[in-house]
């Protein structure tokens, strides 16, 4: 994509803003970005202005204003802490752990823009650690899936089919 301003250089900086539900986009080259003071705090790898993370989330929802999202979702309350999405809009904070279930649909698109993946990859609490047998099975499945991808990319379809069947059998399908 070419720079929106000069139309010559490749746009390397992509800024997407949501204000009151309205999306605005700006795609510029590094040189032209200097003429946009609002971009001068730098950028992150996911295309948003590198504002402080809390600001980012507030801005996404048009927080601080009576945003459209807030109004629509006003009726939905978290059953545990009674928080609404409007409460989140005001503070950038959820009320309790269960809010993540209540407002999952709303928060996932934001996380997709701000985090590498919406799937936890790190440590798990000691009391939730996987059964060693399940863990071994998961690891084997993952390794088979990687092998499957490799076979397909190398166009070794017969072997790929065998691995696919093996995966199916392991999943009990």
């Amino acid at each position: 994509m070419l720079c929106n301003d000069c139309g010559k250089n490749e746009a390397t900086i992509h800024s997407i803003n949501y204000i009151n539900g309205e999306k605005s986009e700006l795609h510029v080259c590094a040189e032209c970005a200097k003429n946009h003071p609002e971009l001068n705090f730098g950028f992150n790898s996911f295309g948003f202005n590198a504002l402080e993370p809390t600001d980012l989330i507030k801005k996404f929802f048009g927080l601080g204003n009576d945003s459209l999202i807030g109004q629509i979702a006003n009726e939905i309350h978290c059953k545990t802490c009674n928080s609404t999405l409007s409460d989140f809009n005001k503070t950038g904070l959820f009320g309790c752990p269960d809010c993540y279930d209540t407002f999952a649909e709303e928060i996932i698109p934001v996380l997709q823009k701000t985090q590498p993946a919406v799937s936890h990859k790190g440590n798990v609490p000691v009391n939730k650690e996987q059964d060693p047998e399940d863990k071994e099975k998961d690891e084997k499945l993952q390794s088979l899936q990687e092998k499957l991808k490799k076979m397909i990319s190398e166009e070794k379809y017969e072997e790929a089919a065998k691995i696919r069947d093996e995966i199916k059998a392991m999943k009990g399908e």
């Binding site: 950038g92 752990p97 934001v110 936890h120 790190g122 609490p125 939730k128």
Partner: peptide, 21 residues
């Protein structure tokens, strides 16, 4: 203590910017 955690979001925090690890 038992920490707030779910499989998808990892450790649950008041601000979503700290989720996961």
């Amino acid at each position: 203590v038992s920490y707030a955690y779910n499989d998808r979001f990892g450790y649950l925090t008041a601000c979503p910017t700290n989720l996961g690890t």
